[in-house]
Design a protein around this nucleic acid. Structure first.
Length: 603
DNA sequence: GACAAGATGAGGGTCACG
DNA sequence: CGTGACCCTCATCTTGTC
């Protein structure tokens, strides 16, 4: 498999020898001039189209292409020509607004786009919804689908009564609804692409999502699968049919394997390891996505469907270290000839904490710790446990044993003295997860935040095992895009594998985490280039094009998107993939797909 | 305001058993 | 195959303390 262009090779040759690498401070200045200047972009009409791959980066979109673009969205060619004549060819947003005005005037009585004086009028709701679903010829006979997907947009529109006018969001939502997209997919796209997104970006996102849904149903043979290139449009009707099929309760869902060893772990290798990837999943770049295995039903089906129908590899890190960590990984890496990090980490609690062996009671049969989370057991709890134990000279009765074991399992307590249990120290968590000691220490970070950052992190040995196949492929190093970097689990894994990090573009919201990675980068004397962003939603097509042209393409796109709304320990907002934080998965997909699209054009 | 402790289950998996 | 007991889960919110 060819994974690198000759361009990359020559670049890497320079990297390793002749280039005198700058200090990080100097590089940060370069980053500012190279990338940050684009963050002030306000109008994005032409840029958005250019980033879709329909037009080259050289200025100017041909008239016929422009017409085709809007006709593809479902506007009559006549109106498109008229709108272009009115606005000129340069400003696609204005053209679109004009077109939407036309269709609004034609299809929708004006009062229904204005405020209804009665906020709880059901008539108002139904009329509006009917109009939204009947805007075009595609949606007849499909009212059930529409009404079932209305809740979110419905709520947004109901807020009209308080403001007295349409907000920008609501206008955009109506615009998309007018174009025949459901309120659900429209509001998801608006959430994913951010408040600044142009309507072209939004429609492209929706179409990308539709395509990824379409692939597994309509095109059983890989040869005919269309690939999202940022420009394809598919008809509305198809999407509704897909939805109906998807709503079928008989649809198969992804099941977790037992044992959870994926395509193998160092100590347990299945006989025949092989898999064939869907054609659309094959790189470059390689991608590697991670999240909790025990997510609400259907979540992994969706993730897999978006990520080019690649089947997730579920692995429990208890096969790599002394703590459980059940995670799913979707990636397009080869699965043969993997090798583990050395030295191999301790596999049992007793090996990991030799001093605890002296105090470990025989009735505590744990050899592995449970999943490391973001919170730890309190001192009060360990005190209660000591008090309970001190009432007995020898082993306590089974009821007390059960109480203590339950709490020990729940809070991952280990024995540190006679009758004395304690939660793991942050540096012990670092060790279990494969990070260097004190990785998260210093720089003003609190103990609580260390636990939080660590609890959200990769298990380095597990990830390194999967990424180890890259070592022979990229002897001179790799360029990596690291989304939701956290404390840099993937970076540490590659470094420990001896894979040189040439350029790492790291996106991480939390400043303490960015500081941790930056500090690690300096301490390990990295010779490459670490560029960080703070928000994945700022990473649009233009910025990615700049970054990619600057570093010459990514070899690997890594990311574990937030699990907050998927994790079982969340009692408050386990809302699934559409939850506030977990929906950032769609940004991983969006960015990965853009990278693929941009790099595909460069060859 | 920063930090730490305490209270807050549902959901989905495994497994033995009839 | 259905059932029920058992087990585990990259968390969030409020309150208390300094």
């Amino acid at each position: 498999m060819v994974v690198r262009s000759s361009k990359d090779k020559s670049a890497s040759g320079e990297d390793s020898d002749s280039i005198d690498w700058n200090t990080d401070d100097e590089l940060e200045i370069q980053e500012d001039t190279a990338f940050s200047s684009s963050s002030t972009l306000t109008t994005r009409g032409v840029e958005a189209i250019a980033s879709n791959g329909e037009a080259s980066s050289s200025a100017g979109v041909s008239h016929s292409k422009l017409v085709k673009h809007f006709v593809g969205m479902g506007f009559p060619e006549k109106l498109v020509s008229k709108a272009i004549a009115e606005n000129g060819e340069g400003d696609t947003d204005s053209i679109l607004n004009t077109l939407l005005t036309y269709s609004t005037l034609e299809d929708s009585p004006p009062q229904q786009l204005c405020v209804n004086s009665d906020p709880i009028s059901s008539d108002y709701d139904e009329n509006l919804l009917d109009d939204l679903s009947d805007m075009d010829g595609w949606s007849e006979n499909e009212t059930e689908d529409n009404t079932s997907s209305l809740s979110e947009g419905h709520k947004m529109l109901l807020s009209l009564e308080s403001t007295g006018s349409l907000s920008e969001n609501e206008k955009m939502l109506l615009s998309l609804a007018n174009m025949g997209y459901t309120l659900e997919e429209s509001s998801i796209a608006m959430k994913r692409c951010g408040p600044e997104a142009s309507i072209v970006e939004l429609t492209d996102f929706i179409c990308a999502a539709q395509l990824s849904r379409e692939e597994d149903i309509y095109l059983p043979d890989d040869d005919l699968k269309p690939r999202y290139n940022g420009t394809s449009k598919i008809k509305k009707r198809k999407f509704f049919e897909i939805c109906k099929k998807k709503n079928d309760p008989d649809t198969e869902t992804i099941r977790l394997p037992n044992p959870m060893i994926g395509f193998g772990v160092p100590s347990l290798q299945p006989e025949n390891i092989n898999r064939s990837l869907p054609e659309s999943a094959i790189g470059p770049p390689f991608f590697y996505y991670e999240n909790v295995a025990l997510a609400p039903k259907g979540v992994w089906d969706t993730i897999s469907r978006f990520l080019y129908d690649v089947e997730p590899e579920f692995v429990d890190s208890k096969y790599f270290c002394a703590t459980a960590r059940k995670r799913g990984y979707v990636h397009n890496l080869p699965v043969q000839n993997r090798f583990p990090l050395v030295p191999l980490p301790p596999l049992t609690v007793q090996q990991a904490f030799p001093l605890s062996r002296k105090w470990w009671p025989s009735w505590d049969s744990r050899e592995k710790l449970n999943c490391i989370q973001t919170a730890i057991g309190s001192a009060k709890l360990t005190e209660r446990i000591r008090n309970a134990l001190e009432q007995y000279d020898c082993d306590p009765p089974s009821s007390v044993q059960k109480f203590i074991l339950d709490e020990c399992r729940k809070w991952n307590l280990v024995w540190v003295g006679r009758n004395k249990v304690a939660p793991l120290e942050p540096d012990e968590v670092e060790m279990l997860l494969g990070f260097p000691k004190n990785h998260t220490r210093g720089g003003g970070i609190s103990r609580t935040d260390r636990y939080k950052s660590l609890g959200n992190s990769f298990q380095v040995d597990t990830v390194a095992y999967h990424l180890s196949v890259l070592k022979d492929m990229f002897p001179s190093g790799i360029n990596m895009l690291s989304l939701f970097s956290g404390i840099g689990g993937a970076e540490v894994a590659l470094h420990r594998l001896g894979i040189k990090l040439k350029n790492v573009v790291s996106v991480e919201k939390s400043k303490v985490n960015r500081d941790i990675v930056r500090s690690w980068w300096e301490q390990t004397n990295q010779t490459g280039n670490l560029i960080d962003f703070d928000d994945v939603q700022d990473l649009n097509g233009d910025r990615l094009e700049e970054v990619i042209s600057y570093i010459g393409g990514f070899d690997l796109v890594v990311g574990g998107s937030p699990c907050n709304n998927l994790a079982g320990s969340n009692r408050v907002s386990r809302d699934g993939l559409e939850g506030k934080e977990s929906s950032l998965f769609y940004d991983y997909f969006r960015i990965l797909d853009l990278v693929k699209s941009i790099m595909g054009r460069q060859v």
